[in-house]
């Protein structure tokens, strides 16, 4: 079940903003198109991420894809257990498969709500 309070990027990352903190992950649509996931590389706590730029990389069977941050800010938490439990991304992409938590200093200007994101996914095919 997808929570209603998420914002999405065209590159299929979601973020949930609570106060000055954004929790970031990738959508169920992205997970289904990546096929079988084998490796995840996330930024260290204390590093800085920038809206629209890559914050990590994920490998499915033989394909490496960049992950793009919806916000700018400092990484305050990284889901260290996710790399060894990539099946969580299929099971709960909006829950326990969150990737990083970021203390927000700026947000990407073109984030979409759930309905707009669904339309984007439909257009992408």
């Amino acid at each position: 079940m997808r929570p209603d309070d998420l914002k999405f990027q065209k590159s299929h990352e979601w973020c949930k903003v609570e106060g000055d903190t954004a929790t970031i992950g990738i959508s169920d649509y992205a997970v289904s198109h990546l096929s079988d996931l084998v490796f995840l590389d996330l930024p260290d706590v204390g590093s800085t991420v920038t809206a629209g730029e890559s914050f990590g990389e994920i490998e499915s069977v033989k394909a490496v894809s960049n992950l793009y941050s919806p916000v700018t800010g400092e990484v305050i938490e990284s889901n260290a257990d996710l790399g060894d439990n990539l099946e969580w991304l299929s099971e709960e992409p909006f829950g326990k498969a969150w990737m990083v938590k970021v203390k927000i200093s700026a947000t990407a200007p073109d984030l979409m709500d759930g309905a707009a994101y669904d339309a984007h996914c439909k257009a992408e095919g």
């Binding site: 065209k10 590159s11 033989k62 394909a63 490496v64 894809s65 793009y68």
Partner: peptide
């Protein structure tokens, strides 16, 4: 042997391409 890299790239004009 086959392998891929997928990226979303944005140019100086702010236009993005997958």
């Amino acid at each position: 042997g086959s392998a891929q890299r997928r990226a979303r790239l944005t140019n100086d004009a702010g236009e993005s391409r997958n």
